[in-house]
Write a protein that binds this DNA or RNA. Structure first.
Lengths: 216, 216
DNA sequence: GTCTATAGATTGATAGAC
DNA sequence: GTCTATCAATCTATAGAC
């Protein structure tokens, strides 16, 4: 029988180190040596426990995106169920809130989560095929559900317009997902609102006004 | 005296090859061998003509961003001058149009320009320090001017809110700057409007409604 | 200016002892 | 499971012939 405690601890240390290094330096910019040194484990440990560097990336993403997506889906289902109960269309603001709020809350929950959010913020535009593909695999069902909810909220709208606007909303979240990115180009006196809910309000106001009445 | 024709042609071929490869595979994912092979020049040519791989990246960005930024600034100045002449506040839509329109038009002007737009779309969130820094160096004056114009358009608005909203607008442009990105997660029947002006309208409608009346 | 050849450093991965 | 040692395959950059 294997030493499960040692295994679990070593794997976790590797995941933590890799997560932070991938966030700071990207996938290609991070070496197995950097990861294992930071984790305080042997160079061979990554290949022993995960198989390869690519499989390690998949594990890094999976560990965080699994729970996060379950949260987002639960909130979304709640919104849709509540709307169905009252016989009204679901509110776009509630739908977007079900996606944005868990994401930004999760980001503040733990340094590792913050690092992972940095990785996935980059992932959609990444030139690193593995990062992009692994992220898309994890996000696709969520994206489909979100889009379906938006279509339910705007039954009359041409689907291409709704899809574009939904993508604009998701893209608009990017500066809040990468705070140091937000800091770049900021005027010298800029202070991001300290309260997460305030940040969320400003983003949701922007997106929902952007979506507008939208029944033209 | 050097052979200026040969030099200019070789440099251009290297720039073209590098631009496309950086767009496809990122900076780190592109080797000098791949660049020189694609350009049909010798491996040593990059270091001879540009000094280093990093200096080549700077040259790739500079060649396109120089003219593009001049276009954007000229349009922005036009908007501000026209507003000053009539004594009215500049219209947010005109300001954003001065930034968005040259960008997306430029992207359609030439395959190389399209590749370069892909590079700069990724640059703001890039984990590759050189890409990010080189881009920021080129975009910073433009960003400052844009933000100043937005402040002129919304004189009463708290500056942190205006800055955030402006960043949301810039981020929202991302899906239109990377078309294949837009295609990912799209519903099977999705067709991006063929006309650039139509794409622009949808984006500008979204952003300007998002910015809203905004004098609270 | 262009070329070949190669230096010098790093990389992901693995074999095999413990 | 952990370790050392190492392989084979990269890479950027450059020296020096033409």
């Amino acid at each position: 029988m294997v030493n499960q405690h040692a295994t679990a601890a070593t794997k976790a240390r590797i995941l933590d180190a890799a997560e932070n290094l991938f966030a700071d330096n990207g996938f290609r910019g991070t070496t197995l040596r950097a990861i294992t040194t930071k984790a305080g484990v042997n160079l061979a440990a990554v290949n022993y426990h995960f198989g390869s560097k690519e499989d390690l990336l998949a594990a890094v993403l999976d560990r965080r995106l699994g729970p996060l997506n379950r949260q987002r889906l639960a909130k979304l289902d709640q919104v849709l169920a509540a709307a169905a109960k009252t016989g009204r269309l679901p509110a776009p603001r509630d739908i977007l809130h079900a996606f944005f709020e868990p994401t930004l809350r999760f980001r503040e929950s733990e340094p590792g989560a913050r690092a992972c959010i940095t990785i996935i913020t980059r992932a959609i535009t990444s030139a690193e095929t593995i990062v992009r593909d692994e992220f898309l695999k994890q996000i696709e069902p969520m994206g489909r559900r979100l889009l379906a909810a938006m279509q339910a909220a705007y039954p009359g709208l041409p689907s291409h317009k709704l899809y574009m606007q939904t993508r604009f909303c998701l893209a608009a979240m990017q500066p809040l997902m990468m705070e140091d990115n937000m800091a770049r180009m900021a005027p010298p006196d800029f202070k991001l609102p300290h309260e997460l809910d305030r940040q969320l309000d400003i983003l949701l106001d922007f997106c929902c006004q952007g979506l507008g009445n939208n029944h033209d």
